[in-house]
Nucleic acid binder design. Structure first.
Lengths: 316, 316
DNA sequence: GCTATTAGGAAGGTTTCCTTCCTGATAGCC
DNA sequence: GGCTATCAGGAAGGAAACCTTCCTAATAGC
């Protein structure tokens, strides 16, 4: 069996603990010689995880921040805390993070042991009780996770749905994508009985459950699925736009904007690119420019420039 | 170099993606033969990470939930989303999760690449602007993280402090522990100028920075550090208590209660134990009993029994 | 200077690993 | 019912990595 891979993971887990580990102690814990510990540390470093070492009598090893995220090895309660806090964010507590948070939550829930899942449920029902539903009704993050999981497994789904006229129907659909728009979540799915694509508001879905059967993937009705939903729900997603020249490589900007919101990027050379932004307000745009963490010039919109200046003032 | 350990991590990362991976595609991505992929899957299973495999034409491999948390391999934006949401929870958004959330946040921040750290800061300043500070002033989660990191590294810390009388002083302390009590965070530290232990309210700390020098650990002034802070701040941590017999092994209960709040546990046999609970209200106690996810009997407190019944009604 | 620590070279025996062959079993689809 | 995708795993053999036991050297704190 794979002794050394498991030991490396174990070592990573120890090194993520907020303390320093002397080599001999690591050797004792991992049941190997200290030379092997040094070899393992070297291996981790070659894998790109920077292991700091301080010498001297109070020295030891510790994992520090590097270029890439190392695998996170979580305790049970840490995993629960992360799941719960992600659930609140998915519910719309923070602007613009919903979809990314849902992705992270999915990843976590896929591997979260069942007993911890029950703890998360209990805690979330508690927090739902506490939060006074600041704006609009909260979406149940468990329902979102259920839908996302069903879509991932390509399983047919059944649920009861109330359309905007108030009439209730039972649906059988092939779920494809979840889209966050404003304060609402929408499900894009293929309705097998009506034989066409439909968009459902998630907060109107009840009694959702998997119907077991698996389906073959169809081509989606549109490339830009968020735009598709926006058009169908007649909800203007983009209210203001702005053009900005950012002093960074197009790939870098693309990576940093990933998961946040739409917009097009055109390269203007190795270290400059033109970004077309869209958002609900100039303040939003100004804020996301700040997240980019790069120099930029506003090209076309005086309102955006003013908003940027205001944000700058606040930081200063 | 360690080829196979890196490949196993890579494989884990792929399998955590919300989709199914056919063996041949994994082999292509990992640059090995399909037989080796099967061997790797077998290795992961032996390490305790259950890899589901579905056969047939649309089959493939996928990681599912097992007994223990596997290492989480996060994208950049997922890591940012988790850090931001943990920050809001640490600020006191959810009752009882603060300390655990801070632990998880520390673990994440220790290995979070610097560029992502800046994104997290920007997003958090945005959310601070959004949330209308629902109750009391929010604590800056960055400050908490800084203090925790300084304590971890055993470095002297300097900061400006306003005591309750309003007089400002500059302090040099050895930071030891952060304690959450009610809606406030406290730092237990050794004041090197006053040559004694002191307890500081974190929201009164300003201009905190590390003083570089490392110090040798001293024995803490008390075993139960939360109780120590509660006594010193004359803030009753425990207002109500209750005695409960839980139908589960003492170790199980201890593991599930870890990180939540104080209380003593005494074993009454292989599958029963007596738990002494303390909390701010009977509703809190009733709720945490729910999180335990085990049968129980309330022994002494009729108020607690009533609260439990109320929670049960709400669930039903 | 003493003692803790990290760092890493060399040698050698052992183990694991990876590939290339097989053969079977299973699920979905035409 | 066949066809074709998938997972599952045995066998063999050559190559590569691993682990340990020895060294020696450098560094930080008391």
């Amino acid at each position: 069996m794979s002794e050394t891979s498991g030991r490396l993971l174990n070592l990573l887990s120890l090194l993520q603990t907020p303390r320093e580990w002397p080599g001999p102690e690591l050797a004792r814990r991992l049941q190997v010689s200290t030379r092997t510990v040094r070899n393992d540390v070297e291996r981790l470093r070659q894998l790109g995880y920077p292991v700091l070492a301080s010498r001297g009598a109070v020295g030891g090893y510790r994992l520090s921040a590097g270029a890439a995220m190392p695998p996170l090895l979580l305790d049970d309660d840490e995993a629960v805390a992360i799941a719960v806090s992600l659930g609140t964010v998915t519910g719309g507590a923070i602007d613009g993070l919903e979809e990314t948070a849902l992705r992270a939550l999915m990843k976590l829930q896929q591997v979260l042991p069942a007993r911890l899942g029950r703890q998360v449920d209990a805690l979330q029902s508690h927090t739902a009780r506490l939060s006074r539903q600041p704006r609009g009704q909260q979406v149940d993050s468990n329902l979102l996770a259920l839908i996302a999981a069903t879509a991932r497994d390509r399983e047919l789904m059944r649920f009861d749905y109330c359309d905007h006229a108030g009439s209730a129907t039972e649906r059988r659909v092939e779920p494809y994508r979840l889209v966050n728009l404003g304060r609402r979540w929408y499900l894009v799915a293929y309705d097998v009985e009506r034989d066409d694509w439909r968009t459902f508001r998630v907060d109107r879905i009840q009694q959702a459950r998997s119907a077991g059967h698996r389906f073959a993937l169809r081509p989606l009705p549109a490339e830009d699925i968020a735009g598709y939903v926006a058009a169908r729900t007649r909800q203007a997603r983009v209210k203001v736009t702005g053009q900005v020249v950012v002093h960074a490589a197009a790939e870098v900007v693309e990576a940093r904007m990933r998961g946040w919101h739409g917009g097009s990027i055109a390269s203007l050379g190795p270290n400059r690119c033109l970004v077309q932004l869209g958002g609900r307000s100039v303040e939003d745009l100004a804020f996301w420019l700040g997240v980019l963490d790069a120099d930029f010039e506003v090209m076309d919109s005086p309102e955006l420039a003013a908003a940027v200046r205001q944000v700058a003032d606040r930081y200063a």
